[in-house]
């Protein structure tokens, strides 16, 4: 792991990796979206509103995966003092919050025709809204310190504490009676018919690569900013 502790070495890999993630990601999103909008059949009950699945599921996955990434980076930062861990966590926060918001909005739009309501305070929806607020708190805390490249130790601790919400979101529909349906895709298989399910693979992988590309871009921008500021300080001192 310490082979990549050197920002210069990280940048050497991140520079070519960023456009690959973005281009392949966008391509897969386009393929999945076309298939999901034009090729798949409508659902027998929901009709065409089932198609919101192809964005709602990747958004939910990235909102929760984003915080999992922040929690892992926080542990790496606190334990191994890895210089890039805080940079990664800071870069994940804003896109993670954005995808959480997309998940909530698309779910609400789907809920109106399907359930007959825009919003209900059930376990899944409430815990996902809490995740969005955790992201807001994290971004606020990260920006409260002078360090704009990495994050403070207090922010890293908050990143670990907030991770307790992730299993709660995941299990909320199993533990409690909820309006949101139970998990469709489990280790035992899927209750979504394969004709409707398959475009989900390109959109989930595509949005994940896109997310990764954005995070790499934000990490590089923050590292470059730090470099500029260090050089300015040296010039001012000279």
């Amino acid at each position: 792991m310490h082979a990549y502790a050197n920002p210069a070495r990280f940048l050497k890999i991140a520079r070519p990796l960023t456009p690959i993630c973005l281009v392949v990601g966008i391509l897969l999103i386009l393929i999945g979206s076309y298939a999901g909008l034009a090729l798949t059949p409508p659902d027998y009950l929901q009709g065409d509103s089932v198609r919101i699945l192809y964005i709602h599921v990747p958004a939910a996955w990235l909102g929760m995966g984003g915080w999992t990434g922040i929690a892992i980076a926080s542990i790496v930062q606190l334990v191994w003092r890895h210089p890039l861990a805080g940079v990664a966590a800071r870069a994940i926060a804003v896109p993670g919050a954005l995808f959480t918001a997309i998940c909530l909005v698309t779910g609400s739009i789907w809920g109106r025709p399907t359930w007959g309501t825009w919003w209900e305070w059930d376990g899944r929806m409430t815990s996902m809204l809490v995740l969005l607020f955790l992201y807001f708190g994290y971004i606020g805390l990260a920006n409260a310190s002078d360090d704009r490249t990495s994050v403070s130790r207090a922010t890293a601790i908050f990143g670990i504490v907030g991770a307790v919400n992730i299993p709660i979101i995941n299990r909320s529909v199993v533990w409690w009676n909820s309006l949101h349906q139970g998990p469709s895709i489990t280790l035992r298989g899927s209750t979504i018919s394969s004709e409707i399910l398959w475009p989900l693979a390109p959109t989930v992988i595509g949005f994940s690569l896109f997310f990764g590309g954005i995070v790499l871009m934000r990490m590089r921008a923050n590292l470059a900013q730090a470099k500029v500021e260090a050089r300015m300080r040296r010039l001012a001192a000279a």
């Binding site: 009950l45 089932v50 349906q181 998990p183 004709e195 409707i196």
Partner: peptide, 14 residues
């Protein structure tokens, strides 16, 4: 409120 279940399928199958 209608509660949707976790099964999704095309109309022909249903």
């Amino acid at each position: 409120l209608a509660k949707h279940d976790e099964r999704y399928m095309p109309p022909e199958l249903a």
